[in-house]
């Protein structure tokens, strides 16, 4: 029987560390995918999609903010200091979200879809978990996330089956990004503790569910995944592609002029 924890204060020290590790992964993925999404604002292939991508980017940033706020409640720095003042090696996001996809709509769309399926599964697991504040938060965020998934589900078959060119670009994007998507499920030292405390599913279980969901939708979109692909790991332990360093330099540019200033 797993005990329900009504507040964050109910966490014992090791479980609290595991929750902090988990929240950083969730928050860092969400802010970086949101940032990547906002790179399309004013530049998307059609105006309606410009608006949709901007809107989803705001949701993702908003989700990140709520995770950082919870981290702050657990004794970590406030959200702005955490995002705008943190060094590259302290970030825990997966390489999937770190990769630059500017001017590559196929990669941006496939990446967002891969992320949204994973995020939905994570929120579903948290919503059923034993840590009440996180379960409540996850239920709230899920209600927005379902629209992101609908967006992905709308696009995959249209571009997967639209023209020969769109099919090829989408297949290339899937081939490039799939190993990075598997890297989202990199196991960390927190896996066992979170599972035993009934807070969150193990990463290998989430990965199984993610592969099944994605495989089905891509199949219906005439796109194939490479079942033998090896995951790209490292993000969860602070090893990142150069693209993330470039992103952070830009994101922290104004803040670093004077970290004590209010803008």
């Amino acid at each position: 029987m797993i005990a329900t924890m009504e507040t964050l204060n109910d966490l014992d020290a090791p479980t609290k560390s595991a929750v902090i590790d988990l929240l950083y992964r969730l928050a860092d993925d969400a802010i970086i995918i949101g940032h990547r999404g906002s790179e399309w604002t004013g530049f998307a292939p059609i105006l309606e999609e410009d608006i949709a991508f901007s809107s989803m980017a705001q949701d993702d940033m908003g989700h990140a903010l709520t995770f950082y706020q919870m981290l702050h409640e657990l004794g970590e720095p406030d959200p702005d200091t955490n995002v705008f003042g943190r060094k590259l090696e302290q970030w825990k996001c997966a390489s999937l979200v770190s990769l630059c996809s500017k001017r590559d709509w196929a990669k941006s769309l496939v990446r967002k879809y891969f992320y949204d399926v994973a995020e939905s599964l994570r929120l579903e697991s948290l919503a059923q978990g034993s840590l009440v504040p996180l379960a409540q938060l996850a239920r709230k965020l899920s209600s927005e996330k379902k629209y992101h998934l609908m967006h992905g589900h709308m696009w995959m078959p249209r571009l997967g089956q639209g023209t020969d060119e769109s099919h090829q670009l989408m297949q290339d994007a899937v081939d490039t990004l799939y190993p990075h998507a598997l890297g989202m499920f990199e196991s960390t030292g927190a896996d066992d503790l979170l599972d035993q405390a009934g807070i969150f599913l193990r990463e290998d279980e989430l990965r199984k569910r993610w592969v099944a969901a994605v495989d089905k939708v891509l199949g219906e979109s005439s796109l194939k995944i490479n079942a033998k692909a090896s995951p790209v790991y490292g993000g969860r332990s602070g090893k990142h592609p150069d693209d993330l360093a470039t992103l952070l330099d830009g994101m922290q540019l104004v803040y670093k002029l004077d970290p004590s200033a209010k803008w």
Partner: peptide
């Protein structure tokens, strides 16, 4: 938008440009 110096400014500027 990529250079906005806080959460609040980043999200507000993104919403505005949208």
């Amino acid at each position: 938008i990529p250079h906005a110096p806080s959460f609040k400014r980043k999200m507000a500027l993104l919403a505005k440009v949208q």
